[in-house]
Design a protein around this nucleic acid. Structure first.
Length: 463
RNA sequence: UCCUCGAUAGCUCAAUGGUAGAGCAACCGGCUGUUAACCGGUAGGUUACAGGUUCGAGCCCUGUUCGAGGAGCCA
């Protein structure tokens, strides 16, 4: 009679198999040992489990194999699941009392050790770095964010309608677009799906597009990628006030879903989840006018050598040079301005009503105050910057044509877009949320490059 | 494009202008509860590249390349 083979299980499910003999398939993440004991940390993609190899239990030969196995070797390991508070791992608390193990491939000279490494080295080895527990955790959170985005929109009457990535020349400056050859013509990688979204709402009402967007900007900061993912909902019969309510519900749902489903990942990242638990509607709203006045006040006080208190009474952080906060009405915010403003609140903050001159041509002006438009940026807390840009769109065909002319844009390229206002125009609004910045904020990581599996940056196209 | 900083062992970093070193990783040995284990040992170098100053340069000077952080840019 043959013994029943041990079931192959995932590390995330180990708690259901305490006392049973199971098989894990995975890779050796790290190991340590003490004489006749070898502690193998095995990861299988769903978690990390400590597998304890005891020489008298497995015999000298198998023990020697386990004891000499290099990091990232692939293996299957069979043993009894034991609950033990000492067991490290993700989720941890359970370990395997090894009865046998089989090496699938010995990995020689794995370059990423359990020590510190520099950014360039890690980015050159991004294809391997994603195996490390912190990167693994971030990308698991990213997957949750993307799932939460779709789930909330799908549950609130939106349908996903894809917009093109290859687009004709449309905007005035093509310097920030990636140009591609399109059978002898020039085409550009999309930096937004919004204009197409506006066509789609007249067919489907609430829509969203969700995919990669491309910006050929020579930005070298912790907040910029040249390829990033953006979700852009667009809503018919919706004004700016209604839009902000949708945005705060949407963002809160994303954050709360991550807290609920990624507690282990956020623990691996050492994230202070108390900074996220209170993320719920309503978010504070601040007009652009007030924001400028606030920034001018902060600038004056910092120049006078005063300490400016941020939320929670702690001093304002990260302002190297107070003069970077200089601003006058009419100027767009730079990142130092956003950094200062967001520290005043413990939630994301809306800045509403930017000058029309610094925003896109299609934003609806305020009645009686045409120099200001119905636009709102949502700035994430803790200095993570703008995660949403949104606005109510111009619904009048005449005004839209006027704006296109004022911006020196080619009317022919926008013929179809203006035509949308001819056949049943309605008030409508929409916004775009950047996935990587949102993930970086939720995870509490320094740089958006870690929020993308294979990030593309100014000087980074490999691997 | 601009500003600041950096490049030394596979990795992370030290080294008054005077013999290039440590920790980790690798390899050998020891240990029955390790958590980035610990202890002992071995091996590991065109100091990014090119030129210059000097009796002598990892160190000082000039240029180049690459990288990091920030600014600008980011309808």
């Amino acid at each position: 009679m043959h013994a029943t083979p041990a079931p192959i299980v995932s590390i995330e499910d180990l708690s259901r198999y305490v006392g049973q003999v199971v098989t894990l398939r995975g890779w050796l993440y790290n190991k340590t040992g003490k004489g006749k004991l070898a502690f193998l940390q095995v990861r299988d993609g769903t978690g990390i489990c400590q597998c304890v190899v005891f020489r008298p239990s497995v015999g000298d030969e198998m023990f020697a194999i386990a004891d000499k196995l290099p990091q990232e070797s692939s293996l299957t390991v069979t043993g009894a699941v034991k609950a033990d508070a000492r067991a490290p791992g993700v989720p941890g608390g359970y370990e395997l009392d090894v009865q046998s193990l089989q090496v699938i491939q010995r990995a020689e000279d794995y370059p990423i050790g359990p020590k510190e490494h520099g950014t360039e080295f890690l980015m050159d080895h991004r294809h391997l770095w994603i195996r490390s527990s912190r990167q693994w955790a971030v990308l698991r959170v990213r997957a949750t964010v993307m799932r939460a985005i779709r789930a909330w929109l799908d549950d609130h009457g939106f349908i996903e309608v894809s917009t093109p990535i290859l687009t004709p020349s449309a905007a005035e400056g093509t310097t920030n677009l990636f140009e591609v050859d399109y059978f002898g013509d020039k085409a550009y990688l999309a930096q937004t799906g919004q204009l197409y979204n506006e066509a789609n709402i007249f067919a489907f009402n609430r829509v969203y597009c969700f995919g990669p967007t491309f910006r050929a900007e020579k930005s070298k900061t912790r907040r910029h990628l040249t390829e990033f993912w953006m979700v852009e909902p667009e809503i018919a019969f919706c004004d700016l006030e209604q839009l902000l309510e949708i945005e705060e519900q949407f963002v809160s749902h994303i954050v709360q879903t991550c807290l609920r489903e990624n507690a282990d990942e956020l623990r691996v990242l050492g994230r202070d989840v108390s900074r996220l638990q209170g993320i719920a509607p309503p978010f504070p709203r601040m007009t652009y006018d007030d924001a400028v006045a606030t920034l001018q006040d902060i600038h004056t006080r910092l120049k006078a050598g005063e300490t400016v208190e941020a939320h929670g009474g702690v001093p304002l952080q990260g302002i190297e040079d107070p003069d970077l906060l200089k601003i006058e009405w009419g100027m767009d915010f730079g990142s130092p301005h956003e950094t200062a403003l967001t520290q005043l609140y413990d939630k994301p903050v809306f800045v509403v009503g930017f000058p029309s001159a610094v925003k896109a041509f299609y934003m609806e002006p305020y009645p009686g105050r045409p120099e200001v438009c119905k636009s709102a940026d949502l700035l994430a807390p803790e200095g993570y910057g703008e995660i949403i840009g949104g606005s109510e769109r111009i619904s009048s065909g005449e005004l839209l044509e006027q704006r296109i002319q004022e911006h020196g844009l080619p009317m022919s390229a926008y013929k179809w877009y203006v035509e949308l206002r001819k056949y049943g125009s309605v008030p409508h609004s929409g916004f775009g949320l950047g996935v990587e910045r949102t993930v970086a904020w939720i995870c509490g990581i320094e740089h958006v490059r870690e929020a993308s599996p294979f990030p593309r940056l100014l000087n980074r196209l490999y691997p």
